[in-house]
Design a protein around this nucleic acid. Structure first.
Lengths: 114, 114
DNA sequence: CGGAATCCTATATGATACTG
DNA sequence: CAGTATCATATAGGATTCCG
């Protein structure tokens, strides 16, 4: 999962390395039009444990795709948002979403009967 | 890695599940404009072991994205190609490639100095 | 609330050898 | 050539508990 020092043979590989994590693309997708707190994200991605969610968020952060803002209040409050650089991913995410929609239609027809 | 019976909460998740594998997007990318034999693919994706390459190819095949044609000759000859459905992924792959290119420029500037 | 720490298991991946 | 089989390990991922 190290991002650095990996030499990629092609750009596609690099992008997948950044957003191909189990929940990363979904997280970015949910952040596309809103700032979200940790618990809000967790509600949107319930399959992720807090550990996984934290891990993926930290990786996205260290890759410069999202920002993490901690408010020193009680109870704690943390907000996650797309960075400017993260926003450049929006066309990619939309294309993933569009194709996924078509794919889901396709398999709901066949309904996986094998 | 099971594709079936996973219920996705959002289409982005579905797409990533199909092409998010370690070498899948790269394989698809290499097949975008040509038919390739196993050994040719292996040369293009040298980091993958034969086991991994086979595995990813079989998954792509069972997801209907690529076709596998075995010619009953000696020595054996197998050709992999995008299916029609696989071709619908081309815009997605291009978008992954475009963004990856920009990303690689960005990190080659900073050169990971933290 | 937003995690961190620990422990544990499952899965992914690699190395190597072998085969029709 | 195009894999398969087997063994070993690394990494991902989950469950649980605890804390400021």
């Amino acid at each position: 999962m190290k991002t650095c020092s990996s030499s990629y043979t092609c750009p596609v590989e690099a992008t997948i390395h950044l957003i191909g994590g189990k929940y990363k693309a979904v997280i970015l997708w949910h952040l596309r039009n809103q700032v979200l707190r940790f618990s809000e994200l967790h509600r949107l991605v319930p399959k992720a444990t807090t550990k996984m969610l934290t891990q993926q968020l930290r990786e996205l952060e260290s890759d410069g795709l999202i920002s993490r803002t901690v408010y020193p209040v009680v109870p704690p409050k943390t907000e996650y948002a797309l960075t400017e650089f993260g926003q450049t991913l929006l066309p990619v995410l939309e294309s993933l979403c569009d194709w996924g929609t078509i794919y889901l239609e396709k398999i709901s027809d066949a309904d996986c009967s094998f």
